[in-house]
Design a protein around this nucleic acid. Structure first.
Lengths: 201, 201
DNA sequence: TCATGTTCGCACAGATCACTGCAATAAGCT
DNA sequence: AGCTTATTGCAGTGATCTGTGCGAACATGA
């Protein structure tokens, strides 16, 4: 099944750390990273958009010198990508999906969870900024959700049930959730999110 | 109700003009606007993202002084909004939708058209940048498409047919199209776009 | 054609950003 | 504990952005 998600991230500082032997993700680095991430979220929430977001601004907010940001991330785009990545993907390979006993029930509860997450204005602001910052921003905002969907479908298949493929499920469930969050004013209620499952054939 | 066309249509049609006595959308202004819009699209296509987009940069590309941009638009966000608005919305109130005789046929052809439009990388880049630039960027990128959908449904209703409501149609048709364009690498083929109509109940 | 005032180009200044050496701190390992 | 070196802080510099005042050009309506 889907236990191969563990590998990559861990401390993923975004850019650096290629083949070099020793990384140092310990105490202070982690604290700086956390402070910077928090500062990015704060600033985005405060200014309501990633337009005026610059590295010196983030640095000042985080109580860290701008030099650090220029060296570790290099650009606003990569920093946003890192923040989004750690916000929308599970820290390690851990996939948490509802387990209600039936596929429909799982999907319904999962869709409601996604809708709830997307109803947070700060999350939306982060998503917008990340998408605007580069080509792969969208994929980063999707995070683990495709894997989660796969996991639920796979479990149903092991149970012996018929399932649609993940692509179709994404079109029916994930797409409307993200669409309404980004392209409309109405974020979509949890009831509506649950009802999406009924469109699945 | 339908007489507030964007370009003010020559003579102000009576005493419509808001408090400012005279706007001047004529020759040079229009030319500057077109050059600036083209420059924005060019730069986005070239640099592949709205990250380093600044007003002086756009000005240089357009052969216009930066002062003009600062005065007319004021910020990159507003400029992007203007560009997206004129790119994704019909120039005047004109709505063009396919007319094949059947609702399903109309929707299918329309979905294929949208998919084709969204398959242009430059369009995607503009969308990303606009979304990232502010709160209402997403709505601007949606453009007329909700109205187009409504128009097709309304025509079917006048024909006496049963139709789903526009919200649901948007969830089934528009949402996957935008979702795949923004959040995945695969833009979605035209065949797939046409098949979306089959999910409509 | 002529008057009007909106719009644009130009020069200039303050502010901020992006980036680079060097020194100091602290994390990881033996 | 002690050593190695990844990581951060500090100060400074060139480049670029943001914004203003003034005169000229041009679209608009008479």
């Amino acid at each position: 099944m889907s236990s191969d998600v563990t590998a990559a991230s861990e401390t993923g500082t975004g850019t650096r750390q290629d083949t070099s032997t020793g990384r140092r993700p310990g105490g202070r680095s982690a604290r700086v990273r956390a402070a910077v991430h928090a500062a990015v979220v704060d600033l985005l929430a405060a200014e309501g958009g990633g337009e005026g977001l610059t590295l010196p601004l983030v640095a000042a907010r985080a109580g860290v010198h701008a030099t650090t940001l220029y060296r570790r991330w290099g650009s606003v785009a990569e920093l946003l990508g890192d923040v989004a990545s750690s916000r929308f993907s599970g820290a390690d390979g851990e996939l948490v999906v509802p387990d209600t006993g039936s596929l429909r029930g799982d999907l319904r509860q999962w869709a409601v969870g996604v809708a709830t997450d997307l109803s947070d204005p700060d999350v939306l602001t982060l998503m917008r900024a990340t998408i605007g910052s580069g080509e792969e921003g969208g994929c980063l905002c999707r995070g683990d959700r495709m894997d989660q969907l796969e996991a639920m479908l796979e479990r149903e298949r092991e149970r012996g049930g018929e399932t649609p493929d993940a692509e179709h499920a994404a079109d029916i469930l994930l797409a409307p959730l993200y669409y309404r969050a980004l392209f409309t004013e109405a974020p979509g209620s949890t009831q509506w999110a649950a009802s999406l499952v009924d469109n699945l054939r």
